[in-house]
Design a binder for these strands. Structure first.
Lengths: 147, 147
DNA sequence: GCTGAAACGCATAACAC
DNA sequence: GTGTTATGCGTTTCAGC
């Protein structure tokens, strides 16, 4: 992990489909040397993968919210049950177990407010271990490097 | 946007570096027809781009937190100033303007707790428009499809 | 560690259907 | 809209530094 590797990562985070030839040129290295570094970063797990970045709004999923969730009890079983429910729910894109006044912070992407209400009532409302729900609707994302 | 396009998107979200030839095979289409569809999805902005997904932990950035931030006043100027500061700060990976008890929810990735304290004191502490800061430290992310 | 050459495979566009 | 074909370019490997 030297300065060249960092430049490689910066370029590939900005454009994951850069050709190896172009990447090599940008970091002033030969294509073969560049390729070996990239493959090593992938092997080490520093680069976990590549993905296309979609625009939820143009997919009819323009309603995005973060939801703070508190559990009624804090046993491992309650947590595992809740986490599995989040994994099984396609509109939940992220689920983080956090410290603080609540246990989980999740990110939800749906089509519109009625769809969000359905998620709120049917999914969250159906989980007995959920005791607190606070929704923070995203109006704008001035920065979103993980999009 | 038909069923074939959806399959294309699913494949490219799972692996952004799929070759067009392989993608075409998976969705049972000829490479040229497949490429035209992908290019159209890019042109329409449905596919916003491609990026490499890194592992913060293996980059020595294992400390992740969401921070709820309230502003003292709610003028456009205060907001723009805060948003620009977030854009300029590399450890801030996301910044969302949300409805609710606070104005902004940001995601921060740093090396460790001392580094987070520096961000807290030097960056957030240096912004006069910030009136409320609540940190939610991520202990685990059972689901993170936007990683 | 690196470069450079060579073989192979893929992206891409023109064309016909 | 689709598939076929041809060309040039990129990827990848391997020998040599």
């Amino acid at each position: 992990m030297d300065a060249i590797d960092e430049k490689i990562l910066r370029e590939l985070v900005a454009d994951g489909r850069l050709t190896n030839a172009e990447l090599a040129q940008r970091i002033a290295l030969s294509p073969s040397a560049c390729l070996r570094r990239v493959q090593e970063l992938e092997r080490l797990g520093v680069i976990k993968g590549y993905r296309a970045v979609l625009d939820p709004a143009r997919l009819g999923q323009g309603f995005v919210a973060y939801v703070a969730i508190g559990l009624s009890r804090h046993t491992l079983a309650e947590q595992r049950g809740f986490e599995q429910a989040m994994r099984d729910c396609p509109v939940v894109r992220e689920c983080h177990n956090v410290t603080g006044a609540f246990e989980y912070l999740i990110r939800v992407e749906v089509a519109d407010l009625p769809a969000y209400k359905r998620f709120h009532a049917d999914v969250l409302g159906g989980l007995p271990q959920v005791s607190m729900i606070t929704s923070y609707i995203v109006m704008e994302s001035p920065k979103d490097e993980r999009a």
